[in-house]
Computed example of a mutant assay.
Amino acid sequence: MIYTLTMNPAIDLFCQTTHLIPKIVNRTNNDDVQANGKGVNVSFILKKLGIENKAMGFSAGFTGNYIEESLQEQKIETDFVTLKSGVTRINVFVKDEEAATEYKIVNSGPEVSPEAQKELLEKIKMISKGDFLVVSGSLPQGCEPSILIEIAKICQNNQVKLVVDTSYHEVLDLLPYQPFLLKPNDEELELWFDTEIASTTELVKYGEKLIDMGAQNILLSLGEEGALYLNQTTKLLGNAPVGEVVNTACAGDTMLGTFLAYLMKEATFEVALQEAIAAGSSTAFREGLTDFSDTDELKKQIEIKNWRE
């Protein structure tokens, strides 16, 4: 079983206007509401690929209920900690057509008490040996990054395969607990190692450092350049297919969910990486998560090869 953990989920409200003018009523031409959060997206992708999973996290108020109900409508089990106050955040994205620009308003979300955090950790302790826990996204108010290390300790003790997709510098501190997979991007590598990375060779070098520090596998997303996969013995590079990028926000979540799904199907790393790049690109080429209708065609553009300097 795969469990996804989204500690700071959100409802994303997308609006499109002809123009956005201060101090007047700006009416929208189109709008859409989506349950979101990185782990929530991974759950949706896993389900689309036939992989049963359970979504965990913190939920508050009517907005939290909406996210849980959206997951349950897709036959995804949920096991959220319900907060006693506040509401799960709503983020707003407004596209101004005349100005050809987008405004992004991202809220902080509710305060999570120490008691609620303890309840979440107790739930994590109940995950069975050999199962996967995917920890994705930002932390809510009240949660310090040290909770990631607590989760890593639990997973190592209980032989749960931990997957981490978050940008906090403390990710480096959980590496001694040997997470199964990290999914950084190039910007996060630069942040973690306080450096500028100018080439694929350097990306591989810093990916290898993460392996040396304890990570078992690295899935490194490179945006329009594709992705890298590394472990102790394998280094694979895949290019990205060509297409018009519409929205990159959920592409990484799609890549991660697809990669894990194909590992669960006992695919080779080469196949899993190709499928993951195709699916992530498909999401980037549309407004929402991929429906996988175009991934077979996109795969024809993707070559997976062993990395050599």
Rank of each mutant, 00 (worst) to 15 (best):
T166R: 01
K299G: 00
T166K: 08
E225V: 11
I211H: 03
L298P: 06
I67Q: 01
A116R: 02
Q178V: 10
T28F: 08
D186V: 02
I124N: 08
L289N: 01
E119Y: 00
L71R: 00
C143F: 09
S85Y: 08
T101Y: 00
F285R: 14
Y66V: 02
S59E: 04
I147P: 00
D173N: 15
N231S: 13
I149C: 00
T233Y: 11
Q178L: 12
N30C: 02
D12A: 02
V164P: 01
L256R: 06
V92E: 04
S136D: 05
L182E: 04
T268F: 11
E77L: 15
L83F: 06
S85N: 14
N29K: 15
G252N: 09
V204H: 04
T63F: 03
A35G: 05
D253Q: 12
K75C: 14
I67R: 00
S43C: 10
A272F: 01
V25S: 15
Q156F: 12
K47E: 13
D131Q: 10
T101H: 13
G214D: 04
A99Y: 04
V164L: 07
F269E: 09
A240F: 10
E297P: 03
A240C: 14
Y103G: 03
T258I: 07
K125A: 12
K161P: 02
Y103E: 00
Y206R: 14
V164T: 00
E115D: 15
E275Y: 10
N30A: 13
L263T: 00
